[in-house]
Simulated assay, not measured.
Amino acid sequence: MPENREVHPVELVDAAGRGIGTCTVAEAHTLPGRHHRAYSVLLAGPDGVLLQRRAASKTRFPLRWSNTCCGHPAPNGDLAASAAQRLAEEMGVTGVELREVGEFDYRAEDAATNRVEDEHDHVLVGYVDGATPDPDPAEVGQWRWVSLPELRSAVEADPDSYTPWLPGVLRLAEPAVLKS
Rank of each mutant, 00 (worst) to 15 (best):
Pro133Lys: 02
Glu89Cys: 09
Tyr39Arg: 00
Thr132Ile: 11
Arg171Ser: 14
Ala16Val: 13
Ser147Tyr: 08
Leu151Asp: 04
Leu12Ile: 10
Pro75Ile: 12
Cys23Thr: 15
Ala74Lys: 14
Ser161Trp: 08
Leu151Ser: 09
Thr163Ala: 07
Lys58Trp: 07
Val10Glu: 01
Leu148Arg: 11
Arg54Ile: 07
Ala28Gly: 06
His35Arg: 04
Phe104Ala: 13
Leu51Ser: 03
Glu117Trp: 03
Trp65Ala: 02
Ala81Cys: 12
Ala112Ile: 09
Asp121Cys: 07
Arg107Lys: 14
Ala15Thr: 14
Pro135Leu: 03
Gly102Asn: 11
Val49Tyr: 00
Ala84Met: 04
Val25Gly: 03
Glu117Phe: 01
Ala16Arg: 14
Val146Tyr: 03
Leu98Cys: 04
Gln85Glu: 10
Asn114Ile: 09
Val177Gly: 02
Gln142Ile: 10
Val25Gln: 05
His36Cys: 14
Leu42Gln: 01
Ala80Trp: 05
His120Thr: 08
Asp105Ile: 12
Val13Ala: 06
Ser161Pro: 01
Leu31Gln: 10
Asp110Met: 09
Leu151Phe: 07
Leu178Gln: 15
Trp165Asp: 04
Val125Gln: 01
Ala108Ser: 15
Glu3Gly: 11
Pro46Gln: 15
Leu42Trp: 03
Val128Arg: 01
Ala26Met: 07
Trp145Ala: 02
Gly19Lys: 06
Pro32Gln: 09
Asp134Ser: 15
Val128Gln: 02
Ala81Lys: 14
Thr59Lys: 13
Thr22Arg: 09
Leu172Arg: 03
His8Pro: 05
Gly71Ser: 08
Asn76Gln: 14
Val49Gln: 02
Ala112Arg: 14
Lys179Arg: 15
Ala111Cys: 13
Gly45Gln: 03
Ala131Val: 07
Asp14Phe: 12
Arg53His: 01
Lys179Gly: 11
Val177Asn: 01
Leu43Asp: 00
Tyr106Ser: 08
Ser147Val: 08
Gly126His: 00
Ala83Lys: 01
Pro75Trp: 10
Gly48Glu: 03
Met91Trp: 04
Arg60Gly: 06
Ala176Asn: 12
Arg171Glu: 14
Arg60Leu: 15
Gln52Ala: 07
Gly21Ile: 11
Tyr39Leu: 00
His122Pro: 05
Leu51Glu: 02
Trp143Pro: 05
Glu11Asn: 10
Thr22Leu: 05
Gly21Tyr: 14
Val128Asp: 00
Ser66Leu: 10
